[in-house]
Design a protein around this nucleic acid. Structure first.
Lengths: 216, 216
DNA sequence: GACCATCTCCCCCGTGCGGGGGAGCCGTTG
DNA sequence: CAACGGCTCCCCCGCACGGGGGAGATGGTC
């Protein structure tokens, strides 16, 4: 009995690529595709795939929310393999916390991709780069925020960083969030400290590099 | 006689996707693949493809340089179809100036992709979004820098922007480029003006959003 | 109740940043 | 030749930014 896979990605090209790579294996079968997380629930119910290859970033519903939904609303849910473009995608960790079983970078070689699907299907939790395995382990255990509070921005700090990454000044951010500029300065300072950034420019760079915000 | 295509992209997944999409057409045949622009010349000589689907961003040699090389060193060269991830990729325009015959966004639907390959093979110059057609037309005629000098950064300005986008201060940039800080300030001011940015943060954002620099 | 994180706001203070000028040197183009 | 664009450097100036430190108000956790 082959491993059945459902592909969820907003880019048809990526779906075609995954399909081509996976269908080349005799023991793997792609049973369906979806272009957005919002479409995933009925498909999972109907197709009952062993593995869902899920993109993180999608227009309507992202991979995190979709993962959560699948695991909550479907009984004996499929394994979730999160697919991402960037190595250090903040969202990936969120997806793992949401219950995803592993993740895969799009740059991976075909052999690594099929391997990942097989391992996931067997119940292995796989996390591709070794460094990330450690990171995600820490994330899993709900201690260990001490030395990676770099990522542990508070809600407010995230909001401020998002606006910083859109080019707003402190005054403009204050206006937008309906708080005083001194408050914004506090949050900005906290963000800079946690990100190890010297100024807002470096913070915005970190935001882009980590995938916290992304171009386009 | 089918249209023969050579795929050049550093991501195997994208190559597999393109191959799957194109091979599904009876009149299109993928005759080869390359993972970097540096490998393209011998392959073109040997395979003599009608069309080269060329990624812009690749580790060793980018699509622009590769396009230039192919068109210069090969006689009766293939058509070059530039493939890109981002809509407003500065590099795309450079590639078009380098002699590429058209460009395609990776998000495009499969039908659009095969269409693009067919049209390019027939000698059509195709530029996907209408807005870009106009832009590239202006780029083609070597006037028209007046109203889009936004993009017309000088070498030095590009260098400064690149360093800005790595988080360097004016003093650090000056050190790196071995010039005075006042010089750097001049360049920074020019960059800000041309990009319509208010401060360096907005300039860096523009750099990311335009694909001038990219995460990872 | 004590503790802690978060959010809010305040003070002072130094400086890096960016605007607005100008100027000399060089190479290309008309 | 003169003109122009690009690179280099200089001046003055105002201000937003970021560091350091403090503080009151929530709300949740132990």
């Amino acid at each position: 009995m082959p491993v059945t896979v459902l592909l969820v990605d907003d880019e048809p090209l990526v779906r075609a690529g995954l399909r081509a790579v996976l269908e080349a294996q005799p023991d793997i079968e792609v049973v369906g595709e979806a272009a957005d997380g919002a479409a995933v629930i009925p498909l999972v119910r109907r197709l009952r795939p062993d593995v869902v290859a899920m993109d993180v970033r999608m227009p309507l519903m992202d991979g995190i929310e979709a993962t959560r939904l699948v695991l909550r609303t479907v009984d004996s849910p499929p394994k979730i393999l999160v697919v991402t473009t960037f190595e250090n995608d903040e969202y990936v960790y969120e997806a793992l916390r949401a219950g995803a079983d592993g993740f895969l970078i799009k740059r991976a070689r075909p052999s690594e991709i099929v391997n990942a699907v097989r391992l996931i299907a067997e119940g292995e939790s796989l996390l591709f780069p070794a460094a990330v395995r450690a990171l995600a382990a820490e994330y899993g255990s709900n201690k260990a925020r001490a030395d990676l509070d770099r990522a542990a921005l508070t809600e407010r700090e995230e909001a401020v960083l998002r606006l910083m990454a859109r080019g707003l000044s402190n005054a403009e951010i204050a206006e937008r969030l309906i708080v005083g500029t001194e408050t914004v300065k506090s949050h900005v300072s906290a963000v800079l400290a946690k990100l190890g950034a010297r100024d807002r420019t470096q913070a915005v760079i970190a935001a882009y590099e980590s995938g916290f915000v992304s171009p386009g």
